[in-house]
Design a protein around this nucleic acid. Structure first.
Lengths: 308, 308
DNA sequence: TTGCTCCTCACGTCACGTGAGGTGGC
DNA sequence: TTGCTCCTCACGTCACGTGAGGTGGC
């Protein structure tokens, strides 16, 4: 749909108005949908003398984008954010949120099957409680921490949150975690650090985040293999980490910001211990991680310096 | 929550009323949710003289079930069906529907990531069209065929429906399929056959359906392996298929019903050829299936009789 | 009287869909 | 005049949430 508006204006002083119906065709949206988006201020076509709306090419482009984002299940408010240039920042969180929801849906799916094949209602209910607990923590993690970091730890920890709470100790740990996460906003990231962080990590996609997590997992599960297969990369990496280039990079500054925050907020002192109490699979993972780290330091003793 | 109503009535003629608040506690539902379910006729507690509602133990049990089913994302109408003893029949379809939706969500997820990492809008739009086409066909298959059979073929074919329509021939095939599926209700399964079918297959879970499909896929992909690994089972199976026991079983009757229907409805003459035109991966699959079948008949020539 | 529970009724949500009723140009 | 498009306005959807305003028992 290209409008020969130039010709119209040039030769005849005639104004060519683009009507809704054409816009509907071009965007495959209904009239009512378009009217709704107008009412939401997402586009603002001029209104001509005869009260008809006049859509410009920009309006149509915007509507096409809206249509796509709606089909990808974004809500109107999120679409507004995406359109107003916070695109990657918003999509990153939403994509992660969808991935997390996805895992829960999978579990619910299995529960439906279980119901179908005769499992009793009480057992299903118990498992549903576990799913909800997982959801609560994962969502709070996602939105308590800025940008990429929220996506990462939310995804990282949700893996360990599928266990049923059985003991009083676990129940207490769950409460501690909720308290911790509810109070994060008050402690908060320093605002400039937060913006800096978001700006520098907004282009990392949810898939990349998962890949990073998955790689770490594999490395920890089998450190010997990881160390032998990645000798060159690791040497390079360690060199880079000790270089001035790194010390002056945004990555380094982000690391420092995170470290400070984790110390001050109680991430290390409250959150991590509570997670270990809550989830035996997480505790197990931490133990493996420690072993892997020791093996790593045996091979690369220089790396000790980096932690200081 | 057990109410000593017996005692109350026996010794004192005193009526013990169970109030909403207790029901809220017992079911973890809100008052408003409970009121809504009452307005929908899902429970009908008596109303005592002082206009207070009096919930019985049955009401509470029903509410607990409703709560669970809502958390599993069933709508109110579906829940009504489940509660009115069509449980397995409904859950089977819903579970399959969810699985299909699930796959689509996964694809949409990837599209979100693609958008995030810079893929242009037009490419995303094209892929969205493919997802919608898949959805249209899969949904129609699911609800055009009764019980287990609808679940099975819907799931079976959706695997091959992720290709983009590029040629005119594909577009035509797509239309043929839609026409075919829209006219199925008019041809229809004979009603008694349909009931018979649903009755005999309602206990098959969505997971089992997928497993069956997956097994077939594997067998076709590598027939030699399948034939050598399942010698005993296959011999047993062929014997059973030739026995009077089988000829008198519901399974046999169902097979006949299906075969007749597939001949009359145009399933073989219209639907299958159109699918081959639409989807190259399905065409490929069919060719493999034919090869596998020949190999099978080489080893078990007796099986030829079964097809007549 | 106060504080508690219970009730009904009305309106809001979200992203539109479905008419009803009226205008403007050919 | 007829048939077409355009417009606005009101009400419906789904599964409740959020008050408002009033009753009943201790």
């Amino acid at each position: 749909l290209t409008i020969p508006q130039g010709f119209g204006l040039l030769f005849k002083q005639e104004v060519i108005i683009v009507f809704v119906k054409e816009v509907c065709k071009a965007t495959k949206l209904t009239k009512k949908a378009i009217e709704y988006y107008i009412s939401q201020g997402m586009i603002s076509p001029k209104i001509s003398e005869n009260t008809y709306r006049d859509f410009c090419q920009d309006d149509i482009e915007t509507l096409k984008k809206i249509s796509i984002l709606r089909k990808l299940d974004l809500g109107i408010d999120d679409i507004k954010k995406v359109l107003s240039c916070e695109m990657n920042q918003v999509l990153q969180k939403l994509s992660t949120q969808k991935k997390l929801k996805f895992e829960r849906e999978k579990t619910k799916q299995l529960l439906l099957d279980k119901l179908c094949s005769g499992t009793n209602w009480a057992d299903i209910e118990i498992e549903l409680v576990a799913i909800e607990q997982n959801e609560t923590i994962a969502e709070k993690l996602l939105y308590s921490f800025p940008g990429y970091y929220g996506c990462f730890i939310s995804f990282h920890f949700s893996r360990f949150l599928n266990e049923l709470i059985k003991t009083v100790e676990q129940q207490e740990a769950y409460q501690e975690i909720l308290n911790f996460l509810d109070n994060i906003p008050t402690i908060g990231f320093p605002k400039d650090a937060q913006e800096f962080f978001i700006e520098n990590t907004k282009n990392i996609s949810a898939q990349q985040i998962i890949d990073i997590d998955e790689n770490t997992k594999q490395a920890i599960a089998n450190p010997e293999k990881f160390l032998s297969e990645n000798k060159e990369k690791l040497t390079e990496y360690l060199e880079y980490m000790q270089s001035d280039e790194y010390r002056n990079s945004p990555a380094y500054r982000m690391k420092c910001v995170l470290k400070d925050f984790n110390n001050i907020s109680g991430y290390y002192k409250i959150f991590i211990p509570a997670m270990k109490k809550l989830s035996s699979s997480y505790k197990e993972y931490c133990m493996q991680a420690e072993i892997a780290n020791e093996k790593f330091l045996e091979v690369y003793p220089d790396a000790k310096k980096l932690d200081e």
